[in-house]
Amino acid sequence: MKPKQKAKITIDILMTALLVVLMAYPVTGQAVHEWVGAGMFLLFLAHHIFNLYWLKTLGKGKYNGQRILQTVVDALLLADMLALMFSGIRLSRYVFTFLPGLGSAAAARRLHMLASYWGLVLMGFHLGLHWGAVTAPLRRRFGGKAGPLPWCAGTAAGLYGAYAAWKHQIWQYLTLRSEFIQFDFDRPAALYFWDHFSMMALFALLACAIVSLVRKHRKGAAKP
């Protein structure tokens, strides 16, 4: 594998892992959250540099259902990440304290809260919509079909993710009904990471399902 490919994949895996760490803010505490967040933004910039062709080809070529979905989600995710970074800088108590606090901290916190859980949803969709690109190097390496196990594990994670989404009541954060994270101190802290990873898996699965539906529809329509 070329070094560029390797770097690209490493960055993507890191971003996925770090997102889960960021979501576990009540467990990791403020300082870790801020440093990981700053690191995440650097990775985000690197990710765009490695995927510059996306920007370049935006205006070109045909837009089918899948590509429309991908582009919309990608654009929303981009906006979401920028919102997280700007609000994060405003809220920062360790890394960015050298910057003046412009604007309302309370507003920044609400934006950060809203963008964080929507970011989780969008990141899940992003993974699911680009799943082909994720598995392509694996297919090249190992060839052929992977069998039922990955599908199985993914579905299990996704199903648990539905339960976790309900348990954490993420609907309250997605709609800003709650302005502060409610943390259950009796729940093992380590589960917090798994809960959020599986929520991402849930949204990735949903996106995969939508894509296969869209593809079937397209194939069906294309039949002479």
């Binding site: 199985c152 594990a153 648990y160 339960y163 093992p188």
Partner: peptide
């Protein structure tokens, strides 16, 4: 198998107390 995995994970993690 997926359902069984999911249920066992859920059982592992759930505690009764609410915030």
């Amino acid at each position: 198998v997926a359902l069984v995995l999911m249920l066992s994970l859920a059982a592992c993690g759930s505690r009764s107390n609410s915030p």
